[in-house]
Structure formats: structure tokens, C-alpha cells
Design a protein around this nucleic acid. Sequence first.
DNA 1: TATGAATGAGTTTTCATTCAT
DNA 2: AATGAATGAAAACTCATTCAT
Lengths: 206, 206, 206, 206
Amino acid sequence: MNKTECPSKEQAIYNAVITLFKEGADLSNLTVSQITAKAGIGKGTAYDYFSDKEEMIAKALFFNTAAFCKEVYLSSKEEQGFRNRMMRILLYMENAVGESSCIFRLVHILTDNSTIGKRLKELMESKPADTIMVEDVMRLTITEEFGEQSVSNEKMLYLINSSISRILCYGMSFSNPYNLENCRNEEMRRLVCQSICREAEELLAG
Amino acid sequence: MNKTECPSKEQAIYNAVITLFKEGADLSNLTVSQITAKAGIGKGTAYDYFSDKEEMIAKALFFNTAAFCKEVYLSSKEEQGFRNRMMRILLYMENAVGESSCIFRLVHILTDNSTIGKRLKELMESKPADTIMVEDVMRLTITEEFGEQSVSNEKMLYLINSSISRILCYGMSFSNPYNLENCRNEEMRRLVCQSICREAEELLAG
Amino acid sequence: MNKTECPSKEQAIYNAVITLFKEGADLSNLTVSQITAKAGIGKGTAYDYFSDKEEMIAKALFFNTAAFCKEVYLSSKEEQGFRNRMMRILLYMENAVGESSCIFRLVHILTDNSTIGKRLKELMESKPADTIMVEDVMRLTITEEFGEQSVSNEKMLYLINSSISRILCYGMSFSNPYNLENCRNEEMRRLVCQSICREAEELLAG
Amino acid sequence: MNKTECPSKEQAIYNAVITLFKEGADLSNLTVSQITAKAGIGKGTAYDYFSDKEEMIAKALFFNTAAFCKEVYLSSKEEQGFRNRMMRILLYMENAVGESSCIFRLVHILTDNSTIGKRLKELMESKPADTIMVEDVMRLTITEEFGEQSVSNEKMLYLINSSISRILCYGMSFSNPYNLENCRNEEMRRLVCQSICREAEELLAG
DNA sequence: TATGAATGAGTTTTCATTCAT
DNA sequence: AATGAATGAAAACTCATTCAT
């Protein structure tokens, strides 16, 4: 009876894309052969479930990110207070970046003019209300902790983007040609957390 | 004055790549035909100057970014004091993001496992000492204004990455599927500037 | 009354092919999916009754044409005299051509070197004696009206082909790139009828 | 200096298609690999000259037919009088049918709803004024021999189509499942010629 | 018996790269 | 030195056919 939560072939494609990505593949040069081989299904089968290669990759990123974000959000609710919840979120996201998470990649693809990016935008624009994406995690946490009326739309969006930008900042450090080997991750993480939390408290509680 | 190190054919390729990018092309799907057509040279000629397509694109991004960064750096020196210089830098970079600057794209490509990204990393690792890249702008500005010994390596790197993350934050707002239409850019910009400058002053002057 | 020789599934396939053809499909690019979807049966079921796709299409054309020819022949017998019977036949065939009849298509496929054409030839060569095809309609009508010995084999074949060529002639006018808009169908039809009947009477009655 | 009349690669493709057809290939199932292999050029080269496979085949048929028709027309001018010219034309066309000429095939493809057919129609609709196709041979011969005002548009079109239908009639006899082995071609040819010439004379000179 | 999900061989098409001119 | 015609390897995608259910 576990077929209901694992529609088999679609999920196999998603898993294959995510696995290939984590193995270091360049998503914009992935081939259908690679994907279906990794998924363990025939090439033609993929086309029974997706209209083209871009849809396979875009949906894989979308659903993988959505699943991760839901997990992060639910986890954050176990904590009390905004600062603690934010800490939990940041730690979760940092770990994800560390393992080449799709969240990081998704943001990139959304901005690179690629076909995959266009497909992703379509998916995000038509996503169901109960799907939680990166921005929703921040938005929900903020409104749950500070109340819905406590902040202007502009400040809210600034906070959301500012928080997400810290994740990118951290992720960048792995590919930065200026080596960061002397920079302990803990110190970096402490500074990022400190900065984002204070900013949120000032803008929202003040 | 031996500009022969950078003859016109190479430069034509660089300009073509940058132009195509600003016209909305997906850099990872650019073709050699597109590049040489835009550059106004023969396809074969490109191979007299570059070993392959990836080198054309990687070098175009590298030199375009280096030129822009030098300009930003020199411009920032016209200002007095860290805060004023940083303001000048941020304004410059924000403008660049607004025009789909390669700086923004370069950061993405460095993290997408692509062949172009690998080439870019090689270029950055072996770059001449007098080439100023994104990080160098921040590093030089900080050391010139606060003195070389005034800050730990960790804090320095944190500041560099943190500053660059603000650029990404601003850029993200253009492609964010959650509409930012109600969020005025000025307000966003003010918050970004305020945040980065205060952070720098606290860490370095304090 | 054992209609089991032609069970409903086979007939469904035949009807599907004919319907698709009348809807404007290119018979040599029809897919099994299209056929079985239109027939309302499963794809695998089709292979319980036919050995391959070509057989489905060839048999559909064959039986459809045979049914039509039988109808035409029986109808012509209601008339008295060769000229009247021929008129009836021509009118019938012209109508059929107007609705994209398979008779027209059948002639094409027989001459295009396609696999479907090869199958059709096999079917026609081994057809049961009581199956009436295009040529039989003419042959029977001629012998019934003029008597069996009244005409040489060559003249008979000439008349058969000549008659059929009028149908093609009329059909061609629909797809002729040289516009026929000024040419009224009635005038064309009158000329065709006149010509074929006089020719037959001259050769056979004379 | 003979490069001007043989633009090499395009012509090689045309020749390959025609050769394959004469060798018995089904034009609607021809592959690009077959065509380029027969043409002795690389597969990619074909796409430098044609936008897709259908264009290759449609243009091959079009230009082959145009060349043949020009030849037929010029040859017919060597004869004196309508009947003699028509005889020459019929003989030419019959020979062409005998060698599986594209003329025969072209008429078929124009009526089979295929993509190749659609392309052919486009080519014929936009053909240059000096290109002589099948219909033009008949039209020119008739007007040159009888004068332009001597016949209504309807009668002209009837004559053109009627004549062409005889060619099809003759061609059909090769694939007719009712064997024509007892029917001498000469007798058939005589009857066809007789019929078409008398019809033309009656309608035009009368 | 009937099905349609799964397959992979076979097709079209693209494009980085070469090389004769 | 410069070119762009030619190439063919590699990719996306299709669809006839099979077979487990």
C-alpha cells in the first residue's frame, strides 16, 4: 500500500536527477540517457510521464526543494521564539548547502535564462497553496512569531531575501577562488546568524 | 603600451559573449556560431585564439568582470572614508546587476559544476597579481581604509562574502517568483547599504 | 449468419483507420496509438487480431473498398442498360472521392512502394472470388450488359482502366495546385460521363 | 565553370532522393541517413542546405519534375501540329512512368495529406513563372497550337486533367492486381492517344 | 481475453571542431 | 592569418511491439 506515496516512475526520475546533481553533474547538460539509466527505467518511459527533458529536471528540483522546505519548516516549529526557530532553519539550510542541495541550485537556475529556469518559474507560479517553498519557510516563521500585521510588505520581503542571501553567501564560500580554509565555518555561521536575527528583531519587534 | 597581448579578435569574442548574455542568452547553451556571428569573425578564427567554446565564454566572463572590478575599485578611491567608498561600490554593483552584469552570472557559473565554471576557477586561481576581481575590491577597500593589521582573516572573509551576498540579494529580487512589485527598490537598497556598512564598521573599527 | 469471421474488434480497427483517414490523417504516418484510441480498444488487443500495423491499415482499406464496391455494384443493377448503370457508378464514385474515399487512396498506396501497399497487393491477389473490387464493378457491369464474348481482353482492360482514370481525374482537381475555382464541377462531371460512356459503347457495342 | 549549373550539395541530395526512389524506396519512409549516404555527404551537411527532411524530398521531386517537364515541352515543340506534339508528350510521359518517374509520384504525394505533400504545394504555389510543371506542358501546347482565345477555362482545365489522368491510368496498370500481361502496351497506348487527341480536337477546334 | 505501461531501436536534428582554400 | 563548408558524434524524442497483470 506504499505505492500511493511513491508514484514509482515519476519519483524514480526525480531521485535520479537529484542523485546525479549530488554526484556533481551539471544540471543544464544532463542527458535523458543519464537520467533514465540512473533511474533504472527505459528512455521512452520517461516520455510517458514528462513532455521533455526540461520538465524532468525542473520538476525534480521543484519537488525536491518543496519536500526539503516542508521538513525545515516543520522542524523549526519544534523551537520556541523567533531566534531559536531561525537558528534551526539556518542550521538545516547550511547542512543542505553543504551537501549540494537543490535549494542552492534552484535559485541559480531561476536566474540563468535557461529553459529549465523558465519551467521552474511556471511551476512556482502555479504551485498549490499548501506547497512550502524557500520563501514560505521564512514568511511563515516570521508571521507566526511576530503576528501578521506587525510588518510592512517591503520589510517582510527584505527580510526574506536577506535571509536567503546568507545561505547563498555561505554556499559561495565553497567555490570561492580565494581559499577560505583558514576561516572556520563556525565563526562564519555565528556571524551570519547573529546578523540575520538582529536585523529581523529590529525591523519586526521594534 | 604593447596592447598586442589582447588583440582585436580575442576582444571581439569577449564582447560578443557579453553582448549575447545581456541580450538574454543562456550562457550554458550558447553556440560557437552565435558567438562568432555576433563577433563578426569566422568560426574557424575563434579556434586560432581559443582551444574550445568553454574557454571563450570563461575568458569573456573573467576579463569582463576584471575590467568592471577595476573600474569599481578606481572609482571607489575617489571617495573618502570606508562608508562613502562602500556606498559608491554598492551603487556601482547594483547598477551592474540591473543590467544583467556578468558579475552576477559569474558567481552562478562558479557553482554549477559546468565546464565553463571549471575553466573560470582555473583562470581565477592563476590570475596575475594585478588583476582585481570582486573579492579584491572589497579586500583592498577594507585594508586601505582600516589598515592591514586591523582585522582577522575570518572577519575579513566574512565581510567580503557578506557584502557580495547583498548584491545577490538585490539581484534575486528580479527573478523571485514571489512578486516584489510592492517593494520599492530604494527602500531595499537603503536597507542593504545600512546593514553592510554598519556591520563593517562594527567589526573593523570597534 | 456466422458473423464471427468479422468480430467487432477487427471492425473497430477498420472503422478507426477509415475515420482517421477521412479526418485528414496521412495513412503512412498513422500510429497504432491513434488507431486503437479511435477504435476504443487497448493497444495490445490490436495485436491479437493483426500481426502488425501495416496489416491493420491494409485490411481496413481493403475491406472498406470491397464493401463500397459491393454497394456500388448492387446499386448499378437497379438501372437498365449500360449507360444508365455507368452513370450510377460514376455518380457513386464521384461522391466517394468527394468524401476522401479510400478508393482513391487505395490506388495511391498500391503504387508507392510502401509496406502498406505490399500488404494490399497480397490481399488483392488472394481475395475470395466473391469479393468485388473496383475493377470487378466495371468488369461485371460490362459483361452483364454486353455479354461475355463481346469484347477482347485488351479492350476490356482498357475500358476498366480508362473508367477508373476518370475518377482519378476528378479527384485530382481537388488537390491540383493550379486552381480550378472557375471550373464548375458539373461541367467537369458531364464531360467525364460523356467521354467514358461513348468510349464504352463504341468499343463494345460497335 | 560548370559549378554554376550544379550547386553541388543541393543537387547531390536531389539526385540521391530520385535515385533511391527509382530503386524502389518508399518516399514517405525515407531516412536522412539513407539520403545523405546515397548522396555521399555527411548527415549534418544536408541540414546546411535544407531545413528538414521533408524539404529535401519535396524539393527533389519538384526540381526533378520541373526539369523533366521542360525537356518534354521542348521536345514537343519539334513536332508540327497538336496531334503530333501530343503524341510526343504521351510517349515521353509513358516512358517516364515506366521508369517510376517522379511525375507519377508527385501527383500521389500531392494528395496524401503528408508533410511532403504540403511542402510540395507550397513550392508549386510560389514557383517562378518560367518553371514548367506538368500542367504547363499541356497548357502551353494547347495555347500554342490552338491560340489563346479558342477555349474556355473550364474546357482547358478539363483537357489538362484528362490528359494527365491517362498517364496515371497507364501507370496504374503496372501495379494493378488484375494482371494485364495479356494486354499489349501498344494497344493500350494507341487507345489512350486516340481518345485524348480526339477529345482535344473536338473541344478546341470544333 | 484485454490491457496499457514499459521498452529501446531507430529517427531527426544540432553543433563543436576541423581543414582545404 | 582567416574562413566557413563539411562532418559525425551525440542528443532528444517517437512509436511499434511486448508482456505482466
